[in-house]
Amino acid sequence: MIRDRPLVLVLPALAGLAFLVVPLLGLLVRAPWAELPARLFSAEVGNALRLSLVCASLATALCLVLGVPLAWLLARGDVPGRGLLRALVTVPLVLPPVVGGVALLLVLGRRGLVGQHLEAWFGVSLPFTTAGVVVAEAFVAMPFLVIAVEGALRAADPRYEEAAATLGASRWLTFRRVTLPSVAPGVVAGAVLCWARALGEFGATITFAGNFPGETTTMPLAVYLALETDPDAAIVLSLVLLLVSVGVLAGLRDRWVGGAG
């Protein structure tokens, strides 16, 4: 198999693979297998896992609702300063998530620019709530979706949209029936990345939404807090997170992303 492939590529490839996989094996080796079942079915793990899955999925839904139109605007809309806009969209990628969390507090917190009005007019307060977790995860994960969908839109042939226009379709109908179906694989790939990022989100979540079991303690927060006092528990939590995410991603990949090429 490997005979025809140049070693100068194969060796770094194998080293890279080992670099990614060996730490995961480390988790497996160090896992407290004997007490695993008892820990696995504890209320703590169950709560955190349920919360993580719910929040990551809601955050992905939020990103889809806001991010797909944003990607469309970047790819198709004739907006001035598009380069700058695109750079701004990707800021959460490079921003340390903790800083993102502080920024969210400053805007959406109880005394934040927007948050104080939310509280005064609607009685809505996001910090320390599950909704806050969703907001924090969406903030960090949305660029993944936007970038993936924008790429797909740029690769799609705009002449189909012209064809739709000659048939009398409005831009909204064109977007819904022609553009969106043609970039569906890109949207799915983006949503999967977005979901995975949201599932692992830690810094922005703990800063903006705080940490309270059953309310805002997602798996990554539980792992971090457990790590300080009970490393075995942290390993169990990490394994669960790992297993669930690998399962979901592999399942989605076979059904959707693989076909997208």
């Binding site: 042939d157 002449r159 189909y160 012209e162 064809a163 739709a164 226009a165 000659t166 048939l167 009398g168 379709a169 409005s170 029936r177 022609v178 179906p181 043609s182 569906a184």
Partner: peptide
């Protein structure tokens, strides 16, 4: 008049049939 309000029918060079329909 925008394209979609013109009573035109266009047969494009490579037809541009919507592939998902």
């Amino acid at each position: 008049l925008p394209v979609r309000r013109r009573p035109v029918g266009v047969v494009f060079q490579d037809y541009l049939l919507f592939p998902t329909m």
